[in-house]
């Protein structure tokens, strides 16, 4: 059964005023449990608005959001329980940090869940270890940490609630390449260890291509496509036509094909590209060193 399902989800900002704008238009998606979904789209394509619907921060203008089989705007459903089930990490989450120590800040979410002390302690320490926060750092004030560390503390604050679904809005924005790599691999690790569903909003096709098991492309408030990475990148030209870039290696393969070389077009990682080229060369009976 799908853990997240939306039915004709539509949201209009400032309805009835001259500033009216439909941010999400009739979105129907079904996300299966355990997927790692990359959400891609332009600024203003409705990604952020869409994800804020999934934990009930925004009430849809029309349509339904169904989490784990429950319509979250049903009278009998407590929104707060939905928020523990669907953890949302905002953009630049380090700006929401407020406690005196890193430990307390990570414990804020679990505490709101009314867990007992022991459980809270376990969650905090496990999560801290997962995102590489040392015991020494747990005792520090979060305001003493570096930007990248603060970001990890903020992400851990949501992960520590062990939500069934973890949604991250551009978790790597504004970080250096090394910081990005660290955070992405920690998210991947969290996904594998907890077997939870993870939704990752990103601008970088490369990142999404490498990590996601499914890709959701948003364009002009609508879902452009939702499929596996090979299937999405096979439509490289369409994706380019809506102004999004595909991974560079996919572009290379597109160029090769346009030069008349009969090679597959759904390549999106460097490793897979190497394998494909080798296979191609082998099947055409040419040696690796022959530059045709």
């Amino acid at each position: 059964m799908a853990i997240i399902k939306t039915v004709d989800l539509t949201y209009t900002y400032s309805e009835g005023t001259p500033f009216e704008k439909t941010a999400v238009n009739k979105v129907n998606i079904e996300i299966e449990e355990g997927e790692l979904v990359g959400i891609i789209g332009h600024t203003g394509s409705g990604k952020s608005t869409l994800i804020q619907h999934l934990n009930g921060l925004i009430k849809p203008t029309s349509g339904k959001v169904i989490i784990d089989g429950e319509d979250i705007w049903d009278k009998n459903v407590k929104l707060r329980d939905i928020r523990f089930k669907v953890g949302l990490v905002f953009q630049y989450p380090e700006y929401q940090i407020f406690e005196e120590t890193v430990y307390k800040d990570i414990a804020f979410g679990p505490k709101n869940m009314a867990l007992d002390e022991k459980e809270i302690d376990k969650m905090v320490r496990e999560t801290a270890a997962l995102v590489g926060i040392t015991d020494d750092m747990l005792r520090k004030s979060p305001f003493e940490l570096s930007g990248g560390q603060k970001r990890r503390v903020a992400i851990a604050g949501v992960m520590a609630m062990r939500p069934k679904v973890l949604i991250l809005d551009e978790p790597t924005a504004g970080l250096d390449p090394k910081g990005r790599e660290v955070i992405l691999s920690q998210i991947k690790k969290y996904h594998e260890e907890t077997k939870s569903t993870v939704l990752l909003v990103s601008h970088s096709m490369e990142d999404v291509a490498r990590f996601a098991s499914k890709i959701l492309v948003m364009n002009k408030s609508e879902v452009f496509c939702y499929d596996t990475p090979p299937a999405v990148f096979a439509r490289a030209e369409e994706i380019a036509s809506i102004g999004l870039s595909v991974p560079q290696i996919t572009k290379v393969f597109g160029l090769l094909r346009s030069k008349g070389i009969d090679i597959r077009g759904d390549v999106y990682t460097v490793e897979f590209a190497m394998k494909t080229i080798n296979e191609y060369l082998a099947s055409h009976g040419k040696g690796g060193g022959d530059h045709a």
Binding site: L57, R83, V89, F90, Q96, G109, V158, M161
Partner: peptide, 28 residues
């Protein structure tokens, strides 16, 4: 929104609870 996503309750509870709930908003 960010604190609500972490389960903060802003619009219910006693006066004291509500005042306390403002801390996670005011400090950031």
């Amino acid at each position: 929104s960010a604190q609500k996503a972490r389960g903060a309750e802003l619009d219910s509870g006693t006066l004291v609870q509500r005042a306390k709930a403002l801390v996670p908003i005011l400090i950031p």
